[in-house]
């Protein structure tokens, strides 16, 4: 009879080992998505809530590795288009400590608070950030968009 206890003990030991192995595998496995995922919304309040900004590709889809035009739309809280804004653009990949591969510029004002941002290019998949410094008659503010490819 003593032997059954031996088997049970051995069984428990092996089960514990299995749990241990599984834990290691799961804890070290590369995560398929980003931890907690950055906020990728395309419309945001600027940092000091001066404007509401939207940032989206002009032709709808993001194409990796290609120069693209995006549109930055700026409105006040009350929904009034922001005109004549000066816009400076920076950004990069926070996890790879490098900046944008191009230097995008606001090249055109299309009316209705919409600014064409040309020269946007995301060379690799992953988490990108695009930062805008906006200065208009209503004041200066900044906004950061996350783009995950």
């Amino acid at each position: 009879m003593a032997s059954i206890w031996r088997y049970l003990l051995a069984g428990l030991g092996l089960a514990a080992l299995l749990v241990g192995i599984l834990a290691v595998v799961f804890l070290t496995a590369p995560r398929s998505s980003l931890p907690a995922g950055p906020d990728v919304s395309r419309t945001k309040n600027t940092a000091n809530a001066l404007f509401v900004a939207s940032f989206a590709p002009e032709r709808g889809v993001v194409r990796q590795g290609e120069l693209q035009s995006w549109l930055l739309t700026l409105k006040t809280k009350a929904g009034v288009p922001v005109e004549g804004a000066a816009i400076a653009i920076s950004g990069g990949m926070p996890l790879h400590s490098h900046g944008l591969p191009t230097s995008p510029q606001a090249t055109d004002y299309l009316g209705d608070g919409r600014y064409r941002i040309e020269g946007v290019k995301f060379t690799m998949s992953g988490w990108w950030q695009v930062h805008f410094a906006i200065s208009a008659t209503a004041g200066s503010d900044t906004v950061l968009f996350n783009v995950v490819l």
Partner: peptide, 8 residues
């Protein structure tokens, strides 16, 4: 575009 928007 590449030349125009090159990081300088």
């Amino acid at each position: 575009g590449e030349l125009r928007f090159m990081v300088r």
